[in-house]
Design a binder for these strands. Structure first.
Lengths: 115, 115
DNA sequence: CTTGTATTCAACTAAGTGGTTGAGTAGACT
DNA sequence: AGTCTACTCAACCACTTAGTTGAATACAAG
């Protein structure tokens, strides 16, 4: 029932939600790699890895080049910036255990003062 | 073809990959809310929101209470800590534009020095 | 005890995902 | 030209997901 294409932030999170894709990204921090290299650690076909690469590319996390027969993939972490910023808004809620409840109680108190 | 249940990090990212769920979490930073409150901004049924809440709960991002007929949801941002830490490993790659390529060239240079 | 309110459950649907296989394309090497 | 290597495409399959509708549950309040 999905109609509109996903927003970039959703695409980023969705791309990161698969362990294989996170593994591919980790590998790419070491530098560009072609599909064969990237597929090597996984028990799956080249085609499957190629599809994962496509998802990463659509999320903007990977760019592809051309070097003879090879299509090297290159990491582009830029989209993670927005993801990191989004999560960061919640930092105080995990650093300070009961921050959510605190916020609630504060709000409640304010409301009661208003009425 | 999925067999094993998702690891916690994948579950967290998957939960965050939906704009409705991110909206619900944002709302919950203001304090606990019941399903009716959470559903109000969205053009969808209570049941749909209830399902989103279930996903968030399975990801550990939300806990549920009981208050008469109401099942208030409470934010628990703890799982975001790991997600944030994971992304943080890539920070240098978006802060420093060509970090990935730099890393590659450095690696290449080292290899050439070795041989 | 009936009714209203808040929420979940079960069954269903349409579309998306992660994988496969087999055929097709692109460039390199004789 | 023909073949090898590296990859992508298309079709397919099983499973998941995001939504729906309608019935069921849980508690509150007459």
């Amino acid at each position: 029932m999905r109609t509109a294409p996903l927003d970039p932030l959703s695409r980023t999170f969705a791309a990161l939600a698969d362990p294989t894709r996170r593994g591919i990204l980790a590998r790419l921090t070491q530098g560009p790699a072609n599909v064969g290299d990237l597929a090597e650690p996984y028990d799956m076909t080249f085609a499957a890895v190629s599809k994962h690469l496509r998802v990463l590319q659509d999320a903007g996390l990977v760019t592809r080049g051309r070097d003879a027969q090879y299509r090297p993939a290159l990491l582009d972490a830029a989209p993670m910036k927005a993801a990191s910023a989004w999560i960061d808004d919640y930092r105080r809620f995990w650093e300070h255990s009961f921050a959510a409840l605190d916020a609630y109680l504060t709000t409640t108190q304010n409301k009661e003062q208003e009425s």
